[in-house]
Each structure stands twice: as C-alpha cells, then as structure tokens.
Amino acid sequence: MLSFKRLIYLASVTLLVAGIIHILVVLLIPSYAAKDAWAKLGSEDNFWKFKPISSAGRNKIAIPLLDPAFDVSACRFDLTDAPLKVQANGNLAFWSVAIFDRLGRNTYSFNDRTAIEGQLSLIVVNAVQLARLRKDQPDELKESVIVEANQGQGFVLIRALRPDASWKPITDAYLANASCEKFDFEAQESSG
C-alpha cells in the first residue's frame, strides 16, 4: 500500500507537472491557434488589398465580436516584400485603423481625430526600411503616419462607422477606394 508520505509526494509532483503544462499551453496558444485572425482572414483574397470582413453588420468571415454598426475591411501584408502604404479619402462620422502582427496582436492604432489632417495615410515599415525612409523622406509622405513594425507579416483593419443605414453607400465607397499597396522606394527616388 502507498504510504501517506508517498501519496503527498505524488500529488505534489502531479501539481507541478500540471503547472508547467498550464503555463506552456497558455504561452503556446498564440503560436499554434489554427483559427486565429490571420488564418480566418487568409480565406479571402486580401493580400495587399482591402476586402470587407463584414458588411451591413453581417460577418462574412467568422471573426467574433465585430461591431455591426461598423463596416470593416482588412488587408494582409508582408513587409519582407515591400513597405506598406495605406490610403483612403473621404469624410466619415468616425473611422479607426489598427495594425496587427501575424499573431493577431494590435501593434498600432489611430482614428480620424489622431490622424494628420484627419485623413488616412499610413506607411508601415520594418527597421531597415525605416532607416532608408529617414535618410531620404519623399515629400508625399510628409502627411503620413509612419509606423515601424518588427514583424514581417501582419494585417491592417479599417473600421468605418455606419451610424445608420443611409450611410451605407458612403462607408462602402470609402472602403472600396481604400488602397493597400506596396510602397516603392525606387519609383519615389527616380521621380524625385
């Protein structure tokens, strides 16, 4: 028969193993989650272009907890290809932009009041691209928000408020005209 002491010993080892497993699982979930935001967005043709992830309050992609009062578009990018340039023009009741990294962490966000001149113009670069940009900043970027991202892959989300149904054409047009492009240093340098 097991001695009492032995039982206590086995129970403590069990708890220790449980604790280690618990910490490991929690820490590893973000890297191994099969249905994280990136994976869900990947089912749409939204690499280097904006595609709606919700419309008229309905989720097109099963991303939970989206606000039905907003039309939301997403664009995936990979900074190892090129820096990202995001632009949208128009006036909405409210819009906000968020940059997420590959693991779905929100690395940067701003809204129409915190944007320069209230317009959406954004450049996302990695450290090397940032150094290059600082050395010789093109004039057209004077009114852009420049954000450094440490990871190559990520996605940008534009959330456009639709206060009521009559705003639908306006938010749709805003999102349809939003661009999510590779920013070309060479073209800028040769033209300047």
């Binding site: 929690v26 820490l27 979930i29 973000p30 989650a33 249905k35 994280d36 935001a37 994976a39 869900k40 099963a62 991303i63 939970p64 907890l65 989206l66 939301v72 997403a74 906000s96 968020a98 997420f100 990294d101 693991l103 779905g104 962490r105 929100n106 690395t107 940067y108 966000s109 701003f110 809204n111 915190t114 989300l157 959330r159």
Partner: peptide, 28 residues
C-alpha cells in the same frame, strides 16, 4: 490590454484562440 502588444499571456491566448480583432488603444 487585449488591443495591446504588451497584453498578458492569458488575454493574448484568448484573442488568438477565438480569432478576435480587439479594438486598439486609439480605437476604443
């Protein structure tokens, strides 16, 4: 902290497991 790059491991795991896109600090 859900919309924050420095969120705690539990919040991060929850956001990733459910595939959420939480509101960022300047959003709401």
């Amino acid at each position: 902290s859900a919309g924050d790059v420095n969120s705690d491991p539990y919040t991060r795991a929850k956001v990733a497991a459910e595939g959420e896109v939480p509101l960022g600090a300047a959003e709401g």
